[in-house]
């Protein structure tokens, strides 16, 4: 049957942010195709988990609940997902491009002998004419992704080997609740019989997960600094501005490499992708690997002493000047003018 399927990640009874993003993106695809949205979630103590998933408009939810399914290990999850997908035979399957999704999805694609697009940032539905077969394939998944170090966008399709699968980058799909009381059919997946003892051969001995700490993705305002900030001390100016505006501080890779700012605040292709309301880029030149992670900000302010800096091309406000002069003035005038 035609359906869109989402693999949901869960830890400690909480459905991951990325999975909520995927459910929303999956629903939009399902609506275009006029088909149901289905999801699967495998973990421990999942009673009532549907309350976190249904609101996104999920028609069917497959739940496997077993203490051995958390923390995630590859083989048991792959065995369960394979079983469910074989049985449901969806058209499209989505995973997060996370440590888990990028571990699980390729293994599953190999088992199912189907295509998998990595790290998509745009999903759509469209047609494709195959010259060799003289045949038009309709309602295909367009999984559009950056490649080649972020310098190109490739639209990857797959028409002949079912299902079409993609991992999707975190933070790029908009979350959208359809209906708090959406009615979902919940189906229990039997773990025993599907998962064998030898699927537990890889043993997790120890695990440290940083719950959140920095939450760049959620922050509506980001004040980001680049190599042009010059020192760790100068980053305090950015922190001050971020604090009074209620935002977070981020940085370019050059700023991270220089030790001005923590690695987990890096924005860009190999860092976090953000889409805040306001992005202030101070002393950032605007390399494509950086802009790939922030160009969807609603408003961009660039502060750079080089009027030709590439970042200026995508900025709404271009301030040509020394950031050491500009940032204190922004702080001053904000304090004076904000109510």
């Amino acid at each position: 049957m035609k359906s869109v399927f989402v693999y949901c990640e869960v830890e400690n009874k909480k459905v991951a942010e990325i999975s909520q993003e995927l459910l929303s993106a999956g629903k939009r695809l399902a609506q275009k195709l006029g088909c149901p949205l289905e999801a699967m979630v495998f973990g421990n103590s999942l009673k009532g988990i549907e309350s976190q998933i249904s609101p996104y408009g999920v028609d069917k939810l497959f739940v496997a609940d077993d203490a051995r399914l958390e923390p995630y290990t590859t083989l048991p999850h792959a065995a369960l997902a394979y079983k469910v997908l074989k049985q449901q035979d969806p058209q499209i399957v989505l995973f997060g491009a996370t440590s888990i999704g990028r571990d699980l999805a390729p293994r599953l694609a190999s088992k199912l002998n189907c295509g998998l697009t990595a790290d998509a940032t745009i999903l759509d539905i469209g047609d494709h004419f195959v010259k060799k077969e003289k045949k038009e394939y309709t309602d295909l998944l367009y999984a559009i992704r950056p490649a080649f170090g972020g310098s190109i966008m490739a639209n990857i399709i797959n028409w002949d080997m079912h299902p079409q699968m993609a991992t999707v980058r975190e933070g790029v799909m908009k979350k959208e609740i359809i209906d708090e009381n959406y009615s979902t059919e919940v189906i229990t997946v039997e773990v025993n019989g599907v998962v064998k003892d030898e699927d537990f051969v890889v043993e997790v001995i120890d695990r440290h997960i940083e719950e959140s700490g920095v939450n760049l993705k959620e922050s509506p305002i980001i004040v980001a600094g680049g190599y042009g900030v010059g020192s760790k001390e100068n980053f305090d100016l950015l922190k001050n501005l971020a604090n009074i505006l209620g935002g977070e501080v981020g940085g370019s890779r050059a700023a991270v490499d220089a030790g001005f700012i923590d690695h987990n605040r890096q924005i860009g292709q190999t860092g976090t992708t953000v889409r805040p309301k306001l992005y202030i880029a101070a002393g950032i030149s605007g390399a494509i690997q950086h802009t790939a992670g922030m160009q969807d900000a609603s408003m961009i302010i660039s502060i750079n002493n080089d009027p030709e800096a590439p970042i200026n091309d995508i900025a709404d406000y271009v301030i040509t000047g020394d950031l050491g002069v500009v940032l204190p003035k922004m702080i001053k005038y904000y304090k004076e003018n904000a109510k």
């Binding site: 190109i152 966008m153 639209n155 399709i157 797959n158 995508i314 709404d316 000047g321």
Partner: peptide
């Protein structure tokens, strides 16, 4: 290979009307 590249575009930074300011 099930996955096929349908099309490729280089990333062109979209030029929009920006306001040019001094310090």
């Amino acid at each position: 290979s099930p996955t096929k590249v349908k099309s490729v575009s280089s990333i062109v930074l979209t030029a929009n009307e920006s306001k040019i300011l001094t310090d």
